Amino acid sequence: MLGKCIGVGSSCEVYEWGGEEKVVKLFHTGTSRNEVELEYRNSASAWGNGLPAARPFEQVEWDNRHGIVFEKVDGPTFVNRFFEQLYDFQVIDYDNEESDLRKFARVLHDIHKEGIDGVVTEQKEHLKVIIGRPTLLSDDDITSLHAYIDGLPAKRQLCHGDTNPNNLIMSEGAPVMIDWMHAAIGNPAADVAEVCVTILYAVLPPETPPDVLAFFEDMRETACRIFVDEYVKLSGLTAAEITPWYVPSAARQLASGALLDDQALNLAKMIRAELHIFSGQ
């Protein structure tokens, strides 16, 4: 039943399952059954309502690990395609309506404009839980962060909750969002902000050639601007409504424990600076 490993994430591995049309997402030991059931329910709700999500078939257990069997979605992730363009020194075409960045913005807007009954998690409280207490933030930082989150504008829209660009698969030109565990009802600006924070604060691996690093530094702000431009055009949301959500989005990324040291330090520095401004108001 269990085939070769085809993907590794911070919380799981993905294997082929019973042939070529299905995969199983096996969560690391220690992931609770409740968390896995939550992702299964959210994924089923998203797929059942016609959103760009992989179809979940069933929950399973394998070697004392919880798992979910999904339809297999073939194609590179947004990150894979981005790095391919980066190493080919392909300049982002701002006017290209079919650029991956604009497709990403469109798929998020499609998600945010839907209302589905199966997702019930409240965004702000869930954010506080998954952020936890990252080692680079003090107890005082966390207290200020919780107050900051409480003060952000609340909305009642469907949000994916984990818009890491690795979670967008470009399958035959059609974008598919995976990993719906953190889907919630709240403000869609949080989803957009997480993509922006990823682009603006990403640190490339140390083995990256210097010319590629320089090219990335020159293009990252343009990439973020293109993404936001498309989302704002579709949604009516403004850039000024998105940027306040950088702080909890950065804290979410810190909590993942999957960042390079320099990236984590840069995010922590930004968070503390914004919290200082917030506390001084």
Score class of each variant (00 low, 15 high):
I226L: 09
D262Q: 12
K103D: 08
V8H: 12
A193T: 12
Y246Q: 00
I149V: 00
C12H: 07
S45W: 04
R156A: 12
E125A: 10
L168E: 09
P134L: 03
T238S: 03
F104T: 04
T163A: 11
I131T: 10
C159W: 02
D141I: 03
S235P: 02
D229P: 10
Q59K: 06
F216P: 04
V36Y: 07
D262K: 11
T208F: 06
P206Y: 04
D211F: 07
E16V: 13
P134T: 02
P206D: 13
E61T: 11
V24N: 04
M219R: 11
E16D: 07
E221C: 10
C224F: 00
D229A: 06
L254F: 01
A54C: 12
T222K: 12
E217F: 11
D211R: 05
K269V: 04
P175E: 10
F70N: 09
D141T: 00
H126I: 14
F70L: 08
W180P: 08
F27W: 09
S144C: 00
P52W: 01
A193R: 10
R102Q: 13
I92G: 11
E21K: 03
D229M: 03
H160T: 00
G115P: 03
Q253F: 10
L259G: 05
V119N: 07
A264C: 06
A183D: 08
S43C: 12
H146T: 12
G236F: 05
R106D: 10
L265Q: 04
M1E: 09
S235I: 04
L260Y: 01
V119C: 01
H112V: 10
G280K: 15
V14W: 05
T243R: 09
V36Q: 03
L158P: 09
